[in-house]
């Protein structure tokens, strides 16, 4: 039944152009201005957490929203990159920009390896395969000597950017660096989606057999999208390791894969701003419950169920839908 299945997430069909480019640009600029001013009012580390998750969710959305492939294993790229960056920064003493770049490359490399197997199946099987392969990465991280087992890699030095010019031990300095990285990542997603490559991805999502019959090597496009998504998720993971000076098993566990799905689903699958909104909400939710003994998974699980049953377009998707009517 897989080959005939073309109804990928049918009622959340995203559109590439909002029809109002001036409005979209205006909203983006306002959002950027708010983010530049935000550390004056909100604790920068919390903001950086939101930015890392926003980039992570946007990377995940590139795959589910525009190719229709729901990966249940994105924690492998996020967490794998966090370990790689933390190791490069702490043990090899690399400067922060090189460490984060290394994390992104490791994420992309893991994506290439996992994607090679996972794109052989579609739909629900793709999700199960990515989940299983990511669990394999988790067990490797649990046992490998360089990850520090249950303790993880702690006290990762933040270092100095641009050869000692910018001191990143200051939260405010680091915040603007992280904002720059996230803005770059989001712009990359936007560019990919609107490129000819992105158009073909969308064609594959809408009707894969037709894309094949038009002569496209769809598996190459899917693998390309998978690697890009994994690389950007790795960029987010490496940045996260620098911000919290920590890489642990939490980053690579299946719960993290579930969390990024929730952020994207809550914000709106296939919308540009959705993952950012979802990441902010989920991070705020977790921050709120961090000190209580009440397990936050109960709330996230309920939000999951509510999203699937009641508003599958997500918050941003729902707003866009009503706006257009």
């Amino acid at each position: 039944m897989d080959a005939r299945r073309t109804d990928v997430l049918p009622d959340v069909t995203p559109t590439r152009s909002s029809g109002r480019p001036a409005l979209a640009l205006g909203l983006t600029l306002v959002g950027l201005a708010v983010l530049i001013a935000a550390p004056l009012f909100v604790y920068p580390v919390f903001l950086m957490k939101i930015l890392c998750f926003a980039l992570f969710a946007a990377a995940f959305n590139l795959l589910v929203g525009y190719v229709g492939l729901l990966s249940f294993g994105h924690a492998a790229f996020f967490g794998g990159a966090a370990y790689a960056s933390a190791h490069a920064l702490k043990v090899w003493g690399w400067p922060p920009e090189a460490g984060i770049l290394f994390g992104a490359l490791v994420g992309a490399g893991l994506g290439l390896a996992m994607g090679f197997f996972a794109i052989r199946r579609q739909g629900i099987y793709f999700s199960m395969i990515t989940l299983a392969l990511a669990q394999m990465v988790f067990f490797v991280c649990l046992q490998a000597p360089f990850t520090g087992g249950e303790d993880g890699i702690q006290n990762v030095p933040r270092g100095h950017l641009l050869g000692g010019f910018v001191d990143l031990s200051s939260n405010l300095n680091l915040y603007y660096v992280v904002l720059g990285i996230t803005a770059f990542g989001l712009f990359a997603v936007w560019r990919i989606v609107r490129s000819p490559f992105g158009t073909i991805l969308e064609a594959i999502r809408e009707n894969e057999p037709r894309a094949v019959s038009l002569g496209y090597r769809v598996e190459r496009y899917k693998l390309g999208a998978f690697v890009m998504s994994a690389g950007l998720a790795g960029l987010a993971g490496g940045t996260k390791a620098l911000v919290f000076q920590l890489a642990t098993l939490t980053d690579v566990a299946w719960q993290m894969s579930g969390e990024v799905i929730l952020m994207t689903l809550l914000g709106g699958i296939g919308t540009f701003a959705g993952p950012v909104v979802g990441a902010a909400l989920v991070a705020a939710l977790e921050h709120y419950f961090a000190t209580s003994s009440f397990p936050v998974t109960i709330i996230t699980g309920l939000v999951f169920m509510a999203c699937v049953l009641l508003f599958r377009r997500g918050i941003v998707g729902e707003i866009q839908h009503r706006w257009r009517r």
Partner: peptide, 22 residues
């Protein structure tokens, strides 16, 4: 899409396990 069934039961599993861990 069958993926919604997967996502719903995933949320359900989180709730049940969270309640018991609590």
């Amino acid at each position: 899409d069958p993926l919604y069934g997967l996502l719903f039961t995933f949320g359900l599993a989180l709730v049940i396990e969270g309640l018991f861990r609590w």
